[in-house]
Design a protein around this nucleic acid. Structure first.
Length: 470
RNA sequence: GGCGCCGUGGCCAAGUGGUAAGGCGGCAGACUGCAAAUCUGCUAUUCGUCGGUUCGAUUCCGACCGGCGCCUCCA
């Protein structure tokens, strides 16, 4: 098996990867801020992380994945204050929705989904360590800030020269309490709306709440140790989020925070980044409304490399829908087949080797998907020969399972409506009678009638199949 | 202004210093009473433009054109 390689944002190169301890990969994946349902752009990132964990598993590693749920932040507090409720009341339904959407898209469960609000003591301890190491200070506004000029190596991930923020950049809010404009908040002094919405806790620095980056450092180190194997997230988190996580974590522990940083590119819509700010978001609910299967969306996402921007377009989604349907058809054919040919076995073996090779090379899913489709085409041709080689067939099924185990592209089956099934069944019986009597005009009339009801039929060697259409 | 990514057939998209994977669509065939579905085959002398390096470049270098992202709370 070829070595597993992954692009490391820290070094900007594709590097061989092995976990530091045994065969368990400890990875931290930045999760959603739960103030609003996640959009499909967010899910592109989560899908890339799902791909990573599945490929790691395919390679024989054990995966220990942590995905945080950020359940306290400015936007959540704002929403809670507007509605006069607590932050918990804002986040509870959103978290539920997140998991429902995630499951719909077949994103595997992470091992742990820690919540920021449940790790306040850990965060306070981390800030204390930073304060005692003189890397953090409490300002006049009572908030605690990280002093970036005390941390040697600040900027190593994003490679941004923090002194060079020029026109075109988003304007820095001038916070007079900070010693340096680029210092970031570790602990924010409580404001009335924080207290009102239940977003304030006691701390050595007074009532307050954690800064944005703090939870990830605290929770990652709690569950995965001070040096993680892989830390993932969307490309936009490189700066400031991940840069600040490094500063906090390494500042406190004196050890490298993550051995490898891995970032997924954006999903674009209408040529620009999908973002709530831009107002061009679509959600999983929108996908469902368009009649797009989860398998189709997975196919769509995996047809472009994770480090490349992907544009959401109707045409691309439709192509993915058809592509995943073809895979589903093949799966059915494979499970119903009686035997194969010697060549089928060879074709399967080749596809498996190549597919795993592509996936191992910095998660080249589009190339691996190409291998998968080629396998399907060739295997179909072999199955046309009606061979009787059981072992070859078993081999082909195994390959299919292994590759599809990563992509997970078989479209979900529709649950038939019992009442409709009964009606269609009786009309089909009539049509069968008409056909055997040679009355094709009548048969075609029944077909048209059913189509008018939204039922399409297909005559096959083993009888007539039907399905609902739009 | 700084940093970075990208530009491959009608659409989507891999890839490589040695002559273009794959999917969708389209076309043709098999199957079918006819369809549909399915399967099979075909579908880029060419990789944004112009130069350069090289025996040879889509792949390396430079310039230009076009698109996108990041530059403090956004996956």
């Amino acid at each position: 098996m070829p070595e597993f390689r992954l692009y490391n944002t820290l070094t900007r190169t594709v590097e061989p990867f092995l976990p530091s301890h045994g065969k368990t990969v400890r990875m931290y994946t930045c999760g959603p801020t739960v103030y609003n349902p996640a959009h499909v752009g967010n899910f592109r990132t989560f899908l890339f992380e799902d791909l990573l964990r599945r490929v790691l598993a395919l390679r024989g590693f054990d995966v220990m994945q942590v995905m945080n749920l950020t359940d306290v932040d400015d936007k959540i507090i704002k929403r809670a204050s507007e509605k006069g409720v607590t932050i918990g009341e804002v986040t509870a339904p959103v978290i539920e929705q997140f998991h429902a959407d995630r499951k719909y898209l077949r994103i595997e469960d992470a091992e742990i989904y820690p919540r920021a609000t449940e790790h306040i003591p850990e965060m306070i301890t981390l800030v204390e360590r930073l304060v005692s190491r003189k890397l953090a200070y409490q300002a006049e506004d009572k908030s605690v800030y990280f002093a970036i000029d005390k941390f040697n190596g600040y900027g190593k991930l994003s490679r941004l020269d923090t002194r060079e923020i020029k026109s075109g950049a988003r304007v820095i809010q001038d916070d007079y309490s900070k010693e340096n404009a680029q210092d970031f908040a570790l602990w924010k002094a409580a404001k009335p709306e924080d207290e009102a919405s239940g977003a304030a806790w006691d701390s050595p620095w007074g009532r307050g709440r954690p800064g944005w980056h703090l939870e990830c450092s605290a929770m990652a180190m709690k569950y995965l140790g001070e040096t993680l194997d892989i830390h993932c997230g969307g490309i936009d988190l490189v700066f400031p989020h991940h840069e600040d996580e490094i500063a906090q974590s390494e500042g406190a522990s004196g050890k490298p925070f993550a051995r490898l940083w891995c970032h997924g590119e954006f999903l674009l819509t209408d040529g620009s980044k999908m973002a709530k700010r831009v107002g061009n978001v679509s959600t999983v609910a929108d996908l469902k409304e368009q009649g797009l299967s989860a398998a189709a969306f997975r196919h769509f996402v995996f047809s472009t490399h994770y480090r490349k921007q992907l544009n959401l377009s109707g045409e691309a989604l439709e192509a993915a829908q058809e592509g995943s349907r073809r895979i589903g058809e093949f799966a059915e054919r494979l499970s119903g087949a009686r035997g194969g040919t010697a060549d089928l076995s060879k074709i399967a073996e080749e596809a498996e080797t190549q597919g795993i090779g592509e996936l191992s090379d910095d998660l080249n899913a589009p190339a691996a998907l190409g291998v998968f489709h080629t396998f399907i085409r060739r295997a179909n041709a072999e199955l046309d020969k009606n061979g009787s080689d059981k072992a070859a067939l078993r081999r082909a099924r195994e390959t299919f399972e292994r590759l599809n185990g990563v992509f997970d592209l078989i479209p979900e089956k529709e649950v038939p409506d019992a009442e409709l099934a009964l009606l269609v069944g009786s009309r089909l019986a009539d049509r069968r009678a008409a056909r055997s009597a040679g009355d094709f005009a009548r048969a075609d009339a029944i077909r048209a009638e059913l189509l008018g009801m939204g039922v399409a039929i297909e005559d096959g060697p083993s009888g007539t199949r039907w399905k609902k259409v739009d």
